[in-house]
Write a protein that binds this DNA or RNA. Structure first.
Length: 398
DNA sequence: TCTGGGGTCCTAGGACCC
DNA sequence: TCTGGGGTCCTAGGACCC
């Protein structure tokens, strides 16, 4: 395989995405600390982050840290629409776009030809276009590998552009704290710290075998390779999801078995619709539970034959709920979820879906259909058109 | 009053098979 | 018949990401 020796991979990452959309749409919020989500912080503007507010923090804690923050409820449809527009700019830049989430993607701009300009020029233009046409700040990292591009954008945030030239990779990487490595969370960072390893350079200086014995085979090898700047993974388009889940937090209130059953019925009903709309079938049903001490448990069952039929999935999920009954009775249950795994195509996939009466469920389905077939970058067109009653949504790409 | 909701990947052990 | 190696599948848990 051809291995690029040039920096042609962009990691483009919108800054404080939900909060930035709110600031864009309401001038009163600009330059002020904004928190999206009142129960749990879904996003915090950089002004709020300056006070220590972080994503996934409880709303109470966030308000204590930053009492002057303006708290707004999330507007998912606005974020979906903004994401759609940004991804359109991405795809206009290069066809090689790999979406990672609603607000970030890898772009490979190698081989675009001279008229597009150098990768640095392309990256700068991309930032200008997103800022000018969509009104959102976006940070771009540019490097020879996905991993380095991702690290670069993380370092360059917010509203930045950082290029890591191939001859400066290790000089850039090695002084960074290990926590900057994609895939190193609190647990792994702690384990490394017990060996006195705190920087990427210190990871690179340890024998790979030592990392493997400390962190496990895959993580050890992965981390060692990354610390040396090795990452051969190409930018891939059309990555398909491997599982599909729905869950619901229960709060602290006690629930009767009938309550739990009703919740599971609702979750399975939603999942079944999404699965069928995506033209896929699942073989493995997993029941997820979380308890008031934040411990988790799962119970799963694999069917002989994959299905997308709600009754079959529901029967399985109910069986798992019965199996888990003892766990539930002795601990306070705070979350229940159902996940469908081992997804496969369901032979006959429809090419178009009529959404004459678009409701929330139909939109859910449309999103999944497009994501599953054309990659996450194509998601939001169906959502947008689906919101307009009476329009059929063509799901074929342009 | 209600309060995170999605995902990916890896590991380990047991069952089972060749 | 016993032993052992090696592989796949399933289940449960865990780390991590946005």
């Amino acid at each position: 395989m051809f291995v690029s020796t040039e920096a042609t991979i962009l990691h483009a990452d919108l800054d404080a995405f939900y909060a930035s959309v709110e600031q864009r749409d309401d001038p009163r919020l600009r330059a002020r600390p904004v928190i999206v989500g009142s129960g749990v912080v879904l996003a915090a503007s950089y002004e709020a982050r300056a006070h220590g507010v972080r994503t996934a923090m409880s709303g109470g804690q966030a308000r204590r840290l930053c009492p002057q923050a303006i708290v707004v409820e999330p507007r998912m449809s606005a974020y979906t629409e903004a994401s759609r527009a940004v991804f359109a700019v991405f795809r206009h830049t290069t066809p090689l776009v790999e979406g990672l989430s609603i607000d970030e993607a890898f772009l490979d701009v190698g081989g675009l030809g001279k008229s597009s300009g150098s990768p640095v020029e392309i990256a700068a233009r991309l930032r200008r276009e997103v800022a000018g046409e969509i009104g959102l700040p976006i940070t771009v990292g540019l490097a020879r590998t996905k991993f380095l591009a991702k690290v670069a954008s993380g370092v360059a945030k917010p509203d930045g552009l950082l290029v890591v030239p191939p001859h400066r990779e290790l000089g850039f990487l090695h002084p960074l704290p290990v926590r900057r490595l994609w895939g190193v969370g609190p647990v792994t960072a702690d384990k490394l710290a017990t060996r006195g390893i705190r920087t990427v350079g210190e990871v690179a200086a340890v024998p790979e075998s030592a990392l493997v014995s400390l962190l496990g085979r895959a993580t050890g090898r992965h981390l060692y390779a990354l610390a040396l700047g090795r990452d051969p993974r190409p930018v891939r388009t059309g990555v398909r999801r491997r599982s599909m889940g729905a869950q619901r937090a229960l709060g602290r209130r006690d629930r009767s078995p009938e309550d739990l059953d009703a919740i599971v019925v609702g979750l399975v009903d939603r999942l079944g619709r999404r699965l069928r709309a995506a033209g896929r079938v699942s073989r493995t049903v997993t029941l997820r539970l979380r308890f008031d001490d934040f411990t988790r448990a799962t119970r799963s069952h694999t069917l002989a034959q994959a299905t997308a039929e709600t009754p079959a999935i529901l029967t399985t999920a109910r069986g798992l709920l019965a199996v888990a009954g003892e766990l539930i009775s002795i601990r306070g249950l705070t979350l229940i979820g159902v996940a469908l795994g081992d997804l496969h195509d369901d032979g006959a996939v429809q090419l178009a879906l009529p959404f004459g009466q678009a409701d929330a469920g139909a939109l859910d389905c449309a999103v999944d259909e497009v994501r599953d077939r054309f990659g996450s970058s194509a998601i939001t067109r169906a959502v947008l058109l689906g919101r307009d009653p009476g329009i059929s949504v063509p799901l074929l790409p342009d």
